[in-house]
Design a protein around this nucleic acid. Structure first.
Lengths: 203, 203
DNA sequence: ATCAGCATGTAAATGGTTACATGATTAT
DNA sequence: ATAATCATGTAACCATTTACATGCTGAT
């Protein structure tokens, strides 16, 4: 059974506990959005498809007259999730306009190259801050609601990766901007520097 | 004038020099594909649209009976490119199945969490190697064809970023995998460790 | 009473990939 | 000869976003 992009995120979300479509959307937006987005236009139809395929079942959880359906994994659904996670990841797609601008800056507006790198450093720093806030938020909620159990190590790892990667990128681009400024200032090309010496980061 | 995703990459590619649709596709695949993909199904129709909008002009460059059209930027097209690059980048989209698997591993197959991180380390290392090969290739071509001029600093910066970021990620995920293994082995949760102490990378 | 948030859903438009179709030229 | 590569294009399909539509509930 081939899972669609949205099916993967739904099965993952339901593996922890039953949820409504609305809850799934909230969770995606507040945590997975940075590496895996999903809109209502995908989620609700996919919930129906998954139910028809027997991977999930919906139970009515209406409160008064407000309609609400919570879905949970069936045995077959849990099995599908296990099979998915056992396989090698297939999808990796990146569309990054900042890198595209930097890539072409030299032939469009050479004087702006360093500036673009500088802007990228700032936006990476901003993303890092945003993710750090998200983590602190999760931490507080966790502390308050279920202080003894530990939060999921895998999702924490992903969050931490997002934070530290963006911090690293912020520093990297700041340094790259400095070097690009020097290059344009003294007129020397990249070739005058031994490649891999000055920019290489030690880790 | 709002530029489509494909328009941006086309204008960028033509800013350096005139090229055919086929050449644009080759170049995208060999350099920008990692952060900005484009298929023939987008490129050829977009070339027509851009020509109708007066941002590029095509000139026949057929060799014998083999049809070929090379496009170059018009003044208006160059202006549009400058305006595009002057603005802040809008598009940033990431769809990363590896991170999604890691994110959900804890609730689907907790025993595999560390393994997934380990696999990610390997794939980041592979990507770094691939990009390094690409750069060495470019270097050699450059050395052979135009040894005195320096290659474009912006595109080199992007390539170097790809290489070093993936090297950093490989090391980071290898370390994360180690820690995840210890966590499952000794039964202690993530909370027993002071957050931000052990995994924080210095740079 | 009104607004924010909960809750579900669909239609239209857009964006993008894949596969196909066609044919020329160059290298083996 | 034949395969690889150059070269252009389209049609069908798939994925995704955006905007809209509807109505309930709880807080101010």
């Amino acid at each position: 059974m081939e899972l669609s992009a949205t099916a993967k995120v739904i099965l993952g979300m339901l593996a922890a506990r039953p949820r409504s479509g609305y809850e799934i959307k909230q969770l995606v937006d507040s945590s997975a959005r940075f590496f895996w987005a999903a809109s209502y236009g995908q989620i609700y139809p996919e919930l129906k498809r998954l139910e028809q395929a027997g991977l999930i079942t919906g139970a009515d959880a209406s409160q008064g007259n407000r309609q609400r359906t919570v879905f949970r994994l069936t045995g077959k659904g849990r099995q599908a999730a296990r099979e998915w996670i056992a396989g090698a990841p297939q999808v990796f797609e990146l569309r990054d306009e900042g890198l595209l601008e930097l890539f072409f800056a030299g032939s469009i507006e050479p004087g702006r190259t360093a500036e673009i790198a500088r802007e990228r450093a700032a936006s990476a720093a901003a993303t890092a801050a945003e993710l750090r806030a998200l983590r602190d938020d999760l931490d507080q909620k966790h502390q308050a609601e279920e202080p003894e159990s530990s939060p999921d190590p895998g999702s924490l790892t992903v969050l931490r990766y997002g934070i530290e990667m963006n911090e690293w990128a912020a520093a990297w681009f700041a340094r790259a901007a400095d070097e690009l400024e020097n290059e344009t200032a003294d007129g020397t090309g990249a070739r005058t520097r031994q490649r891999g010496q000055s920019m290489r980061t030690r880790w």
